[in-house]
Design a protein around this nucleic acid. Structure first.
Lengths: 338, 338
DNA sequence: CTGAAAGCGCTTACAG
DNA sequence: CTGAAAGCGCTTACAG
């Protein structure tokens, strides 16, 4: 009943066993790290030679079915995310791979249908699921929170869930921005927020209240370049002009900069300063050179991999890790000398 | 011998069969599209209800092992690629998923060791492998060309291989750029090429020869922003200044623009025009608004998915598809009125 | 240090 | 339209 297709061109454990004149179990052991050192060296050599000759490579599918462990990590991303999340995805994949695992990647595209996506993710019995999405798409996370598979939420603090999570303290981050702006003499702050209901936005506003200040404009953006551009135009055509615009995302900040400079012919930072949030790689290009809040992505990703290891040992554990951000000062803000 | 771990929380075919009071084979058929309409509707309903009640979801691993078809497509990318390839990756994943398959993604990171990466890719007996990498990393493709699994090379024309491939006619593309520059009165062309030996670069130079012209500078770049920036400085501090700089990649073109405008205080396009290649999403932001060559990525990806289908039917077929590019004219070039 | 048997959760012919 | 048996390529106890 041997099928005559592509896959059958791969030799099996049995083939290697026959060729090396040992039992299949022995071959299995040679390729299983757990048995390292417990098989006679001469046997190992015999098996390895036979395997090399035949071009043997263990079948991960068969292995997974048996061991109930696939070594596959699902990474689920929100659709149409900006450069920041694309970068995170690549780094996650790279680290997953470096840890000897495979990354099965899914785009949580509502046009495909979220239930279908969840089914796809569950289908291959991955060892754990990492979900990451910008705030605008964070509703997709709800679809996974009652998963049977250990879940790690990346870059968002989710309450009322027993999923593990890694995120940054964005409250502290925006407070630092508030301090920084006030300390450098900014008085008329335009704020392009993310979702208005969020604690992060409230925190920024509260911090300014401690200085007896409040933003002269608070407008909710959609984290895109275009929304930043449009909102900046609104702020700049109103009566009172802001001396700085703080954006909850770099894409919006770049839209703001282009509106300020190209549409209104104003100078950044002399006429209006701009501060972003994300440290998108594009922000460091000289044409923008944007002051922004950097999240320690690499550390967060390393931590995520560590959590995966821990969850493999203890799937029911909930591991939560918070990281601090860093304000990256570039040329879109004037620093007052004191 | 039931294991007491995460995976065992998933109900099996057998559980559903017991619950619905039918045989496991019947359950299998209900979840197998091939049998659609060939199972009595009342039986289907009974099974579906039982499945829903138990939260059943077929085990893709077991299914794959048996059918010798995983429904998984490996996507292999060069490491540290720019926004252009990140974008391609996301789109590929999305389309793979929409076609009902899963995307297993690999970064071909030489620090992990290419042989190890190849093993990882082969391990899960994916249905086909898509490899894509910028020219600078295209050597990674050699590791896959004698794969036992059907291979598709994305965005590069590879000779001496029986892999399938999808690419754009970059010769025609650069010829169009040459025509365009000459027709708009540009005379002193600086050319920041990709790898100098490539046909693409030769073609650009040959086309200019037809007009009795040749680039005043030809310097090989590394496809990065930084290399564009540096090379532009070289060209602008030399005796003769180019009136246009054509770059084999948008990242380099953005580096050039930043050098021209910010370092030398010159105007683009009035002092020096700039043309790129890729249509990187960043190029369309107003601060760059770069004239560039766009490859029809979406069509190329759709075509790749079609090829996957064909290769499943006929794994030994070699399918080659070439696409044409389009010159996207934005504001970094002066158009001469005729 | 090595092996024979059973099983992981499905599907594939073969019957009826 | 439905079912009993064998098998996909491995690993996991259990022996020896």
């Amino acid at each position: 009943m041997k099928k005559n297709n592509i896959q059958s061109t791969f030799p099996t454990l049995k083939d290697v066993a026959k060729c090396a004149d040992v039992s299949p179990i022995t071959v299995s052991r040679v390729f299983n790290p757990k048995w390292e050192g417990k098989v006679k060296q001469s046997t190992v050599d015999k098996v390895l030679n036979a395997a090399k000759e035949l071009g043997y490579n263990p079948n991960g599918i068969a292995r997974s079915l048996n061991s109930q462990k696939t070594n596959i990590i699902a990474v689920v991303m929100g659709v149409e995310t900006g450069h920041f999340y694309k970068q995170i995805l690549l780094k996650l994949i790279n680290k997953i791979q470096a840890s000897g695992r495979q990354a099965l990647v899914f785009i949580a595209d509502p046009t495909i249908g979220m239930e279908k996506v969840v089914d796809q993710v569950n289908q291959y019995r991955v060892d754990s699921i990492i979900v990451t999405a910008p705030a605008t798409k964070s509703s997709i996370m709800n679809y996974f929170t009652n998963s049977k598979i250990p879940l790690i939420i990346f870059n968002r603090e989710i309450i009322n869930s027993n999923a593990s999570a890694v995120w940054t303290n964005t409250l502290k981050a925006v407070n630092n921005v508030a301090d920084f702006l006030v300390n450098n003499g900014y008085k008329n702050i335009g704020f392009i927020s993310g979702k208005l209901e969020s604690k992060r936005n409230k925190s920024f506003i509260q911090k300014l209240e401690e200085y007896n200040m409040k933003p002269i404009y608070i407008i909710e953006g959609e984290y895109t370049y275009e929304s930043g551009y449009k909102i900046a135009i609104k702020m700049l055509t109103a009566n009172k002009k802001p001396d700085v615009i703080f954006c909850g995302g770099d894409n919006m900040a770049m839209g703001v900069m282009d509106a300020v400079r190209l549409k209104f012919g104003l100078n950044v930072p002399n006429d209006i300063a701009v501060v972003g949030f994300d440290d998108n790689p594009v922000s460091s290009l000289q044409s923008y050179d944007l002051t922004t809040v950097k999240q320690p992505i690499d550390e967060m990703i390393d931590c995520t991999i560590d959590i995966i290891e821990e969850l493999l040992e203890n799937p029911n554990k909930q591991i939560l890790r918070e990281f601090d951000t860093e304000l990256i000062i570039r040329s879109t803000v004037k620093i007052s000398k004191k």
